[in-house]
């Protein structure tokens, strides 16, 4: 063919590409190393902006800053002593812990069960699978509003459907915490379920077929094969759920506002009351900072557990 392709740069063209000689543009090493940092600068600036507020909040904890005291002074660890010496704080820590453990536990068991059931790909499962996530996508506060309407003793649909009469109060002193946990389960079980379902569907098929040929029982396969391989997915779900429960606010706040009494006052609701309702910024910040420390330590611990599980599952799956 007549056309010449490729080859050296045709001479008539004005020397594209490498210019040759000393005129080659160079990028010094420091500028090359700087590239990822430059790309991160806006994000870092934003983070600093947020951390600024955070540290400001930490600073409040050693002041006696309140709406009634706009010119605060340094009080050392007085707020900490006050909060840690307050039975209400420990009460709300207990409520939060119970809420987190119960909600996370129930959601995990139900979520795994739902994932296993949906994985059977029956007609019912296929029809409804798309709708699984709906409660999860509604604002928790709106979920709280919906359930508050349903919980209503006189006009709520639940008492009517279950024939409980108009005296049964879902949000009474004894039941309020468990009712709020029920709402949490309603919202977040799908979160566990879709994560675990995605995990199950990504498992390799061969080990199951192999042990099936060996005649292993369903339970044996679930316990020895499936569970170890699914464990990292379950753990991711558990970590997200547990951490979120520690700072739970929205749905509980709209359902009970922490009451009756202090039966559903979680740590973040307690802090809200101190800093926003009572306008005692320093005490509220101290509340929050203590919660933040709890969250931080828990996060570190759970993430290290996750790392171990992932390594083990990688071994089990291989």
């Amino acid at each position: 063919m007549a056309t010449t392709v490729g080859g050296r740069t045709p001479p008539q063209q004005s020397s594209p590409g490498r210019a040759g000689g000393a005129g080659v543009p160079r990028v010094p090493a420091w500028r090359r190393k700087l590239r990822p940092y430059l790309l991160s600068v806006p994000a870092v600036a934003l983070i600093i902006g947020i951390l600024y507020a955070f540290f400001y909040g930490v600073y409040y904890t050693v002041l006696n800053y309140a709406a009634t005291n706009p010119n605060p002074s340094f009080v050392g660890f007085e707020n900490y002593a006050s909060v840690l010496g307050d039975a209400l704080f420990w009460r709300s820590a207990g409520v939060t812990l119970l809420y987190a453990v119960a909600a996370t536990g129930i959601e995990t068991v139900l979520g795994v069960a739902i994932a296993l059931l949906l994985n059977r790909s029956t007609l019912i499962g296929k029809t409804f699978e798309r709708l699984l996530i709906l409660p999860l996508m509604i604002a928790p506060v709106i979920a709280g509003v919906i359930w508050k309407l349903m919980f209503n003793p006189q006009f709520g649909v639940l008492n009517h459907v279950f024939g409980l009469g108009s005296t049964f109060d879902w949000l009474s002193k004894d039941r309020a915490l468990w009712s709020t946990i029920l709402v949490d389960v309603w919202i977040y079980t799908p979160f566990v379920a879709i994560l675990v379902l995605a995990g199950i569907r990504s498992l390799p098929k061969e080990p199951f077929e192999a042990s099936d040929v060996d005649g292993a029982s369903w339970f044996y396969m679930f316990r020895r094969l499936m569970l170890p391989m699914m464990w990292p997915y379950i753990l991711v779900a558990v970590i997200f759920r547990f951490m979120d429960c520690l700072k739970v606010f929205d749905a509980v706040f709209v359902l009970t506002a922490g009451g009756p009494g202090v039966t559903t006052t979680t740590l973040q609701i307690g802090a809200f009351e101190d800093s926003i309702t009572n306008l005692n910024y320093s005490r509220g910040s101290t509340y929050m900072f203590l919660l933040w420390i709890i969250v931080f330590i828990t996060a570190r611990y759970l993430v290290s557990v996750l790392g171990k599980a992932q390594r083990r599952a990688a071994g089990a799956g291989a």
């Binding site: 490498r18 080659v24 160079r26």
Partner: peptide, 16 residues
């Protein structure tokens, strides 16, 4: 070195 020129710090798109 390409064509005797050091490629130290030269971007891929300038090397031809």
């Amino acid at each position: 070195r390409i064509d005797g020129t050091s490629m130290e710090g030269v971007e891929p798109y300038h090397r031809n």
